[in-house]
Design a binder for these strands. Structure first.
Lengths: 326, 326
DNA sequence: TTCATGTATGTAACCGTTTACACATTTAAA
DNA sequence: TTTAAATGTGTAAACGGTTACATACATGAA
């Protein structure tokens, strides 16, 4: 059995209060006593029980991290950013995938609370914001905007705008703009940005709606796109996964890239640079976003004054080989 | 404040013991009483505090998941398999990345224990197995063999053998065999398997050692490989990330794939099928491995009889376009 | 009718910490 | 020298559940 604070107290010949004092460096402890206690701890290989601590203090060193799906290549980077930053602060992660499913989300939120997490980072896009109301612990939304909660997100609208601008500047004349899933807000932002920019230009374009970011679905839309708009010479994809599917289908149809058709993705997931031709895209700084979210959350946990509740991260056009040179 | 069992008891006009009984469906409770209690719970929006429960029972519904790095595309699949299976059993995940760093690993292991996790799944490859000894809760090793602990892993040696067999069968004559990082055991297994098979053949081959699976490093080895062995016409890479780097370098050097040089990877990470040319590889069923590991762990937690402590998952050759047809 | 058994509920101890409070001793200021 | 403040330590009550044990009534068999 693991040693308890009582075992240590007995071994050191003091009371549990004294042990607790050296443990937490609170109150007065005589140097000699401290030494005896520290030695007893070492001797018994003592490590305080976080559960007992958490019960009394009504707060743990745990935070809840809720992602849509870690299997989507955009999220591991986010998660890693979050973890690296939380790690430094001594926090640990209770992790869940929501699949953008309201029931699952609620279930995880409940277990977070029941386990006394001291904060939550959520990257889900469910409407059910009400899940978070009345939660009494800080919540930071990641990859998602919110007027009610602190949030960290990339400037999707500007990203969409840049993508449109770049593809037009590079000479596409008959553009297809893919509109991502309606319930994924960042997808709508980037769509909106691109839409406005295209509308401002005198370029013909079509809009095609999609309903998921799964590669298997994207393959279908890719086929549909070239069936419906065979003369498309530029595609603004809703993210890199969809862009990859488009790229593949275009190649399969014998189109030359970027000569016959230009493609711009969104996210800059790690594999995008490895495709052939490598994918031009709008980069979101995922790792940094994760870090920012964690920092913001920690500040809220510590009740520090926070000046910017909403951190909008910059997006950048990554020029690779699915776009022509200007 | 959240309602406690005492609040519910008061509201329902019973003792906490009775509330606990309806909560856990233990002992006798009169139907009428149960109804009153259930209503009080609903009314107060009561949800039991897992921390208090965990403290008394000395066990939680948490399990610890330790991965080398979620950012490595092989692991999200594993993680997802683990999560999906644990979810079903009502378990939640405490998550950490070890970076194959012994200190970090130990740190996470400690917090797992301090938080009363009821089991651990570890996919690290540190020598420091001693970290796990005397842990008193079940541990399952994932993507790693162990004689002392239950484990789930792919048949790396057979995978290496198959890769060698296939590349030889398809006509490579001057093969370079990449040996993965020495401390990553699965990398050694696949190397060993390939080595034995190649030795058995009458084909010339070189062995080149590498020390990490990071893409940036792999790019360097790719350059080095073609510098040292410019006439190589077949590469058995230590995993798909390394294979991708080789593929890129070969393309950059103007080599035709698979005519001039064949490449076989290992893992079959999601992006491998998206490369151009798409990567032939040895597939490990990552998602299923995660599931198996979770199932195995749950059986141990429930102290069920387990017939196979070591689950070796099959590997398969995925024929794509970096190998020639037979 | 008696008594063993089943049903129903409550009291209080316990899980391993933290901390309010009490008490004693030392130190330093008046 | 007196005394307030600083130092050092212990006791016991929390935290929110679970459960051993006690108690009481209802039921049915002997």
């Amino acid at each position: 059995m693991l040693a308890t604070i009582r075992d240590v107290a007995k071994e050191a010949g003091v009371s549990v209060a004294t042990v607790s004092r050296v443990l937490n460096e609170t109150g007065y402890v005589h140097a000699d006593t401290r030494k005896r206690v520290t030695e007893a701890m070492k001797h018994l290989n003592y490590s305080p029980n976080e559960v007992a601590r958490s019960l009394y203090k009504k707060k743990s060193k745990l935070i809840g991290l809720l992602l849509p799906d870690i299997t989507n290549p955009f999220f591991p980077q986010l998660a890693r950013g979050v973890e690296d930053e939380l790690q430094k602060g001594g926090y640990r992660i209770l992790f869940g995938n929501s699949d953008e499913n309201a029931a699952k989300e609620l279930e995880y939120l409940n277990t977070f609370i029941q386990n006394n997490v001291v904060g939550i980072i959520s990257a889900t896009n469910n409407k059910s914001k009400t899940n978070y109301d009345g939660l009494s612990i800080p919540v930071v939304f990641l990859d998602r905007t919110s007027s009610d909660y602190p949030s960290v997100y990339a400037d999707g609208k500007e990203g969409g705008r840049i993508a449109a601008e770049e593809i037009v500047k590079r000479g596409s004349k008959r553009i297809t703009l893919l509109k991502g899933p309606a319930h994924i807000q960042p997808a709508q932002d980037r769509f909106q940005g691109a839409l406005e920019e295209l509308s401002r230009s005198d370029i013909d374009f079509h809009v095609m709606s999609t309903t998921s970011f799964a590669f298997e679905d994207a393959e279908k839309w890719a086929k549909e796109l070239f069936f419906m708009y065979p003369d498309t010479d530029g595609v603004l994809a809703s993210n890199d996964i969809v862009a990859t599917a488009i790229l593949h289908e275009a190649l399969r149809l014998g189109k030359k890239i970027p000569e016959d058709i230009q493609i711009i993705g969104f996210d800059d997931i790690p594999q995008s640079s490895l495709l052939f031709p490598s994918l031009s895209t709008i980069r979101q700084p995922a790792y940094e976003m994760g870090k920012e979210a964690a920092q913001l959350l920690i500040k809220h946990i510590n009740k520090e004054r926070v000046h910017h509740q909403h951190i909008q991260m910059p997006v950048t056009f990554i020029e690779r080989n699915t776009t022509r040179k200007v």
